[in-house]
Structure formats: C-alpha cells, structure tokens
Amino acid sequence: MKNVTFFIILTLLSSLGFAQNVLEKIPIVVIDRLLFLEVKMYNADPLHFMFDTGAGITVMDTETAERLKLPFSNEIKIGTSGKTLQAKVAENQTFLIGEKFKLDSVNVALLDLSHISKYLKVKIDGIIGIDLLQQAVVETNLDKKQLILYSTDNFYFQGQTKPMALIGLESNHLGLPIEIVPKGSKQSIAMIVKIDTAAQNYLTFHQHTVSEYRLIEKDKRYKTKIGFGADSTLTHNLTGKITSTRFAGKKWKNIPVVFEVDELNRSSDRKAHGLIGQKMLLDFNITYDLSKGLIYLEKRN
C-alpha cells in the first residue's frame, strides 16, 4: 500500500513539474483560407489581424494607425512580393492578445492594406507573424478553431506527430523540406519551401526554381495569375500543375501550382525554392516552437 501511495504522489509531482503554461487561448477565424485573430492596443476596440508566417515585421494599415494615433518616428525598408518599400515605423509597441498575453517591444510598420480588405471583403487592420512566433509557442488548432499560446520555458508537445526541424531563411522566414514530381517526369525533386500562411494556394515556385528545374513545359499554354502582396503592386505569373508532392507524411496528386515568371518576383537572395500555402497547410493543426527550432504538423481529423 505504501508503494502505491508513493507512486501516486510521485506521478502527481511529475505532472506538476512538467505542467506547461498555457498563456492564452483565443478564437481563430478562417476567411478564404487565411487565418485571423483579434488583438488590442491602447485600450481601443479589438483589431482584426491576419496571421502570416511570412511577415518578418508586424504591419498596420494606414487608416487604423491614424485612428489610433500611432507615434511613427522612423523609417525602414520592407520587402514585399512586388518590390521593396519605404515604410514608417512605430517602435516598441505593445499588443494585448486575449485577456492577459502581452506582446511587447514590437516595431510596427505602416502600410496601406486597403487592397487586401477590398479583396477579402473584410476590414484588415494589420498583419502579424514573426513577432508573435518569437515570443511564444504558437498552435493554430483549426479543429478547435483556436490560436493557443504556450510559454517557451516548459513547452512539450502532447500530440502524436514527430517534430520537423525548421530551416532558417532570409528575412526571418521559415522553411521546410518537400518533394515534388513535375509534369513530364517520374523523378522526385527535394526542395525547401517557405511556410506562408498568407498564401491561399498549394505551392508557388520561385523564378530561379522554375528555370533551374525546367518546370514549364515547352509548347504548352499556361493561364496567367494576377496577384499582390502586402503592397498593391500587381504581379503576373503562370498557373500549371505538378504530378505529385509529398510533405509532412502526406501525398497530394495533380495539384495546381504557381510558376513565378514576373520580373518583379525576381530575387537573387531567396534560399527557398518556393512557398507552401494554405491549401496544403490547412490539412494540419500546426504548432510552431521557434525556441527549439521545431514545428509539429498534426494531420487533422
């Protein structure tokens, strides 16, 4: 009996010792495959922010910033999908997420996001990504429709999937390995893709990848896709298909992709071959643990 009692006490102490700290749970909303959450500033009404893993800096819409009287004191250069922009910055700002989690020391860049609001038919106050990912372990649980924040101090993953190591890219971007089989080939190609929760499609291949691996078939006609990023500059690229792709233990066949051919998308410093978008990422509940350089992609029910 004493041994049983000792075992129970030891189990309880172990549970307490390894109990992880859930910092906050808030609703997450999916609009046209994009993820949105509410944040607060200056005791004002909640703001509608997009969660974008490709956002190397937090961005606020011009109209929203003017309404909040955000104190912009500096300027920086921001790289978007279209071009490099000069943007005003409000330094060392604090956001409140949920009732208690404070996101401190955030530099906020000012950009006109009205074109995104118009496209999605909903007001977009801002875009947040790396600043949130660097201050907490972030879980986007689509089955529960929640964004869950954990302390980085004692986090341990409680799901079934194995972690994948994140690959550091330029501008605080995050990459993962993927395999593809192009049309007209039976050979798989190993690539690195940037995780981009602001991309609504399956996969996009950068211009240098399209050229190096000859992803565009000769004498084949492709449709043009007009796109834009955080700025309103339009890009004109091509849409096509690949035979298959494997990612995080799952396989997709005959999926539509985007081939970047627009000169505005040309960049020599891109480490990734392309980016992976929400049409694939939404198949998973994802936990980002940047403190350990890991990501968990758990297949949804």
Rank of each mutant, 00 (worst) to 15 (best):
I127S: 07
N74V: 01
T62W: 05
I226K: 15
S185W: 05
V193D: 03
K145S: 15
K40M: 02
I97M: 15
W252E: 12
R214W: 01
V193G: 07
L203F: 06
Y156F: 13
M1F: 05
P182L: 13
D196S: 05
I116S: 03
E63I: 14
I26F: 11
R300C: 12
K25W: 00
V261K: 14
V193M: 15
N201W: 07
E66T: 00
L169R: 07
I226D: 11
A65H: 02
K102S: 12
L111C: 04
G168I: 03
Q158L: 15
A65E: 06
M1H: 05
I216E: 13
Q160H: 07
Y202D: 08
I124K: 06
I255Y: 10
L238G: 00
G56M: 02
T11F: 14
L120E: 10
Y222S: 07
T243F: 09
P71D: 07
L281M: 04
V39H: 00
N74S: 12
V261P: 05
V39N: 02
K253G: 13
L166F: 04
H115F: 05
H206L: 09
V29I: 11
D32Y: 03
Y119I: 04
L234V: 06
H208C: 07
D143G: 12
I286H: 01
K225L: 15
T287I: 03
L34N: 02
V210S: 04
L132Q: 02
D104L: 13
E263A: 13
Y150R: 04
G79P: 00
R33Q: 05
T239W: 05
A87R: 08
I180C: 09
L133Y: 00
K144N: 04
I127Y: 07
A198K: 03
E75L: 11
I28N: 05
V108G: 01
S105L: 13
S291A: 08
S268V: 08
E298S: 08
R221K: 15
F101T: 06
G168V: 05
L174R: 03
H115P: 00
I216S: 12
M191L: 15
D32S: 12
K40S: 10
Q86I: 14
L70I: 11
D269Y: 03
Q93K: 13
Q135F: 02
L47N: 03
N201P: 04
W252L: 12
N301S: 13
Q207Y: 09
A190F: 09
D32A: 12
S114C: 02
S151C: 04
R214P: 00
F36P: 08
G159S: 11
V39F: 02
L85F: 04
N92F: 07
K241I: 07
G159F: 09
P27N: 11
L34W: 00
L103I: 04
S151F: 03
V39C: 05
M280C: 04
Q207D: 06
L142A: 08
H206Q: 05
S232V: 03
S291P: 06
I192A: 11
Q20D: 04
H208E: 12
L132C: 10
L70F: 08
E63H: 10
L47E: 09
A65R: 07
L23Y: 00
G293I: 08
